[in-house]
Design a protein around this nucleic acid. Sequence first.
DNA 1: CGGCCGCGTGAAGGACTCGTGAAGATGCCG
DNA 2: CGGCATCTTCACGAGTCCTTCACGCGGCCG
Lengths: 224, 224
Amino acid sequence: MTRLLLIDDEAPFVRALGISLKAYGYDVTAARTGANGLAQAAKAHPDIIVLDLGLPDMDGLDVLDALRGWTTVPILVLSARHTDETKVRALDAGADDYVTKPFSMEELLARIRAALRRRPERVEDPIVETDDFRIDLAAKQVTRDGTAIRLTPTEWNVLEVLVRNQGKLVSQRQLLQEVWGPQYETETEYLRVYLAALRRKLEPAPSRPRHFITEPGMGYRFVP
Amino acid sequence: MTRLLLIDDEAPFVRALGISLKAYGYDVTAARTGANGLAQAAKAHPDIIVLDLGLPDMDGLDVLDALRGWTTVPILVLSARHTDETKVRALDAGADDYVTKPFSMEELLARIRAALRRRPERVEDPIVETDDFRIDLAAKQVTRDGTAIRLTPTEWNVLEVLVRNQGKLVSQRQLLQEVWGPQYETETEYLRVYLAALRRKLEPAPSRPRHFITEPGMGYRFVP
DNA sequence: CGGCCGCGTGAAGGACTCGTGAAGATGCCG
DNA sequence: CGGCATCTTCACGAGTCCTTCACGCGGCCG
């Protein structure tokens, strides 16, 4: 299901839009403030964000900036203001589309569909095999010698990021950002702990990792 | 240069828009009819298409359909009609954006920039090969005879700057600034140490460098 | 011809990072 | 309320990397 984050403070509007969007099969989360919106975005990783520029606690453009600092998720901006300057600034700040109130629900839905359609298809093979274990990304399961291995949610998230970038070096920054959110960018101890856990559960010789490679000072790399 | 195809039949409008777009660095081609537009698109493979729905020979939506039959290039639709139904149909037919006339040039330019920004990251080959080793910039990995070579973070940064400017001379100043920061501009000893490390790890004959060339008094140059 | 400057090379101290085990903190379940 | 799984935080030893220094070589210029 497509997850949509709606950042807007007008309760009736949010309610109406939420109902319509849910009717069309979106999984809608709402945030009433910019700060909350940023937190929700970091936590839930929505597939698209609908952002109203008129927020009680922050300038909408600052919210946009903060989001674009770490994510490329499509962002559709709503606004009652329709000066060219605001439009241009929002679009250049990384908004994917800009819709001026009032607008019809049909148009908004069509623009959301258009923004989502552009999403690069994730056609990657959801199963990755190594000599020692097998990862099924779709089923969220890891098996070793035919038996399933239990991973905690966080362990799984770390594994998934590394596997989706297999062969490539994933910087500590990127890993922390994608698993814990943008405000944890410096908590490198988490990585040490969770990489140790993954190696203990998956590597044949945890102290001599073959698949979860540390590149000192830079990040980690998964090699099948 | 970004190539833009403008499909519109109103001569004054095309002229005005063409001038503005060219001033902003776009390489503009114009077509006055739908048929001609389709032909131009097939021939020139533009980076973005701006399509007016009001054309003399064909329905704009049919032009859109025909284009989407074979290309995913961003298409920005212009129209004097602003019924929701048309908007929705155009967006669902594969338009990336829909702008209603009249609009300001600034807004159109901003929307063009936004559409181009979304373009799938340039697949520009991030792999550089020499006779002796292979550099994968995306994966941050260097291999020699099939085996990976470990580089320290600083070594990698130096290498990356040189490789991204391959063939060109990189001044000591620029190298120091890009790797260590602006306040290290005179610490040329660092360069000697790290260039030596790179040559030791990558050059077949470190004392006779073939790829990491010193230009005395000026800087360094990487040649594949 | 001789001194000087820039460059290459090897080595060493110290700061920083990583792996590891374990203990506290938190949240969820019955 | 208590037990359990999970997340967070901590401390320490081992290892890695950055910086700095000393020395030798070669070209350049007076």
